[in-house]
């Protein structure tokens, strides 16, 4: 490992090799070099945790730069170590937004948000947070740098960004990403409704999505059963969406109440992705909420319950991993805990 350490220090500078084996790269090319070094040595790369075996832990804390801001296309490209909060602050100053994430996600890095997404990180107007990535850059297990083609949509084969997005570093290390922004809407409004049972609130939330409304945020609380909606956009559209929400809610037996944001949860809690087909069947604990609504699903979150660390085996992912990373340089699928 000592020979390797020298090479690591040469790659990122001695000051950026910390402790037993943690490196702090400043650029994608450095990450590529680091991975190459480790791969050649038969070692393993991990992210900020105990890496088993002769391994290297990558700390992307230096990679916090915004590389490009395209105000005509509403796109921002930033390195993977930047936090949501910092990036949102930068774009907000120019009247733009990344779209909302729960308070517990504000300090997550771009690499974590895209590499280890949580079901709660979604909203009707903006879709899932990972859906905001228009292009992604990364380093493959053999140290090759890759960059997906930037375009709003493509038909050029499989979506290769999926190797990196949601992969928790198992097929590649995310080094940077280009994210879709929106302009802040002219008008912001809120509405809230109380119901007799959560099921009614859930059916209204779902109906809103199915009918094509795209509010900024929708949350359903179990106890007391409450529907919370935030709207943002042109005045006429916000007005129409508000009226529709009200009609649906009252039609389902809801009564309007003042809107009050629920207490945020901190850190990692139980989160489960729910497809819209199953959203009404879920049994909600008293402290549970259904948030992160988008056109294909929502997220069940229980601030009072510990996170679910079980992983579903995916033969396709395992096969892809074997083909791309035969020596196991990067972590196994599901190995890296959520950051």
């Amino acid at each position: 490992m000592s020979g390797v350490r020298e090479r690591l220090e040469r790659a990122v500078g001695a000051a950026n090799v910390v402790g037993a084996a943690t490196a702090r790269p400043g650029a994608s090319a450095e990450i590529a070099e680091l991975v190459r070094i480790v791969a050649e040595g038969g070692g393993r790369v991990g992210f900020g945790v105990d890496v088993k075996g002769a391994g290297l832990s990558l700390d992307l804390g230096r990679m916090v730069n915004v590389l490009h801001l395209d105000q005509s296309s509403l796109l921002v490209t930033a390195q993977a170590g930047i936090t949501y909060a910092r990036l949102e602050e930068l774009v907000s100053a120019r009247g733009m937004t990344l779209g909302p994430v729960p308070p517990a996600s504000l300090d997550r890095t771009l690499g974590a948000l895209l590499g280890a997404p949580r079901p709660s990180e979604a909203s009707p107007a903006h879709g899932t947070f990972v859906g905001r990535a228009a292009a992604v850059a990364g380093v493959l297990p053999d140290g090759t740098e890759v960059q997906t083609r930037l375009a709003p949509r493509k038909a050029t084969g499989p979506d290769l960004a999926q190797a990196l997005i949601g992969g928790r570093g198992s097929l590649g290390v995310i080094t940077a990403a280009t994210l879709r922004l929106r302009r802040r809407g002219e008008v912001r409004e809120e509405a809230a409704f109380r119901f007799d049972a959560p099921r009614a609130a859930l059916s209204v939330a779902r109906a809103l999505l199915v009918k094509g409304a795209r509010p900024r945020d929708v949350s359903v609380l179990a106890e007391p059963p409450t529907l919370l909606v935030s709207f943002e956009g042109p005045a006429a559209v916000v007005e129409a969406e508000r009226a529709l929400t009200r009609a649906l809610a009252i039609g389902a037996g809801g009564s309007p109440i003042p809107h009050r944001a629920p207490a945020p949860w901190a850190g990692r809690v139980l989160e489960r992705a729910l497809p819209l087909e199953r959203v009404l069947d879920v049994a909600l604990a008293k402290s549970a909420r259904v948030v992160g609504w988008h056109d294909r699903g929502a997220a069940l979150v229980d601030p009072a319950a510990p996170p679910d660390t079980s992983a579903t085996p995916t033969p396709l992912l395992d096969a892809w991993k074997r083909a791309l990373d035969p020596h196991g340089t990067l972590p196994a699928p599901g190995e890296t805990p959520h950051a």
Partner: peptide
């Protein structure tokens, strides 16, 4: 797939890799 294995892939589960997107667009090559 080309080895006669059946895969069931979900797009709607946010918080997981969207592997269905690797088959969509593959034009019969996978």
């Amino acid at each position: 797939d080309g080895a006669a294995r059946v895969h069931q892939l979900d797009c709607s589960a946010a918080g997981a890799q969207d592997l269905a997107q690797t088959i969509i667009g593959s034009e019969g090559t996978l």
